[in-house]
Design a protein around this nucleic acid. Structure first.
Lengths: 134, 134
DNA sequence: CTAAAACTTGACGTTGACGTGAAGGTCAAG
DNA sequence: CTTGACCTTCACGTCAACGTCAAGTTTTAG
């Protein structure tokens, strides 16, 4: 398949696919007139790349994981990289949960007509801030 | 307190604090010679801002939430915004979990000497990709 | 009094994953 | 044959949250 069909099927732009190739994330065969040709597996490959981008992995890191993706082996460096990224993602999830809790506290307080009775007010991670004391 | 102390206590740079003020996220009093002066509550305020940044909220959105933060009220628009961001964070957490699972599958496969016996190979979200069929 | 530390505004630089033309070749259909 | 969809490379633009000088002022310590 050519680049337009892959883009549609994988849900990305053709520009993104050329960018992936430029970064060494996605190989392609070429026709006699230099048009890119992809195998079926490229669709899922692109979706995996997108997933890793969404998880905050930069392209350089994904490139370094490519050998493991292609061959299914685990060089000790790749393994370490996988573990490190796994930890980073877990940390990011915890930070998201903390931020969501902060928003939830704001919602809870906003819903209370008498905030004096709300225990969340006594853990003021978002303490009211009127102005500075000169 | 002045900007340097606030920066140290909140764990950010002075540049960041001036940026927050520029974006309307953090007010400050000024001395006669225009130096910034902050109240104690600014420390936690900055930490909240950092937490929301970490959660992916852009400064424009945080600015729009500021009235709720300051007054503790819930204008319907602020409430909608809070709910929308909460949902976005929940979605982001799910995406992170999915990416982490993908990395875990790679680890699991790498640990298997005989991948034919590994059931994860039959859900190839990361299907092997050698080259395109011309 | 003086030197260092801290502060001010202003303005350009960085990073990553693309967007967006420009200027032109290629390919299936009528 | 020609039109229009699709493709190529090249290259500059974008956005956000700051980093990093520059050049001058203010505050603090000795």
């Amino acid at each position: 398949m050519r680049i337009g069909e892959l883009a549609r099927r994988a849900g990305v732009s053709t520009r993104a696919l050329r960018y992936y190739e430029e970064q060494g994330l996605l190989a392609s065969e070429r026709t006699a007139s230099d048009q890119r040709v992809y195998a079926e597996a490229a669709v899922e490959r692109v979706r995996l790349i997108q997933q890793l981008f969404t998880a905050g992995l930069p392209s350089r890191t994904i490139v370094r994981l490519m050998p493991s993706i292609e061959t299914g082996d685990a060089s000790p460096e790749s393994f370490e990289l996988l573990a490190a990224e796994r930890d980073r993602i877990t940390t990011a999830m915890a930070e998201l949960a903390a931020a969501r809790d902060a928003l939830d506290r704001m919602v809870a307080i906003a819903n209370h007509p008498t905030p004096e009775h709300c225990p969340a007010l006594r853990e003021p991670a978002w303490a009211p801030y009127e102005s500075a004391e000169v």
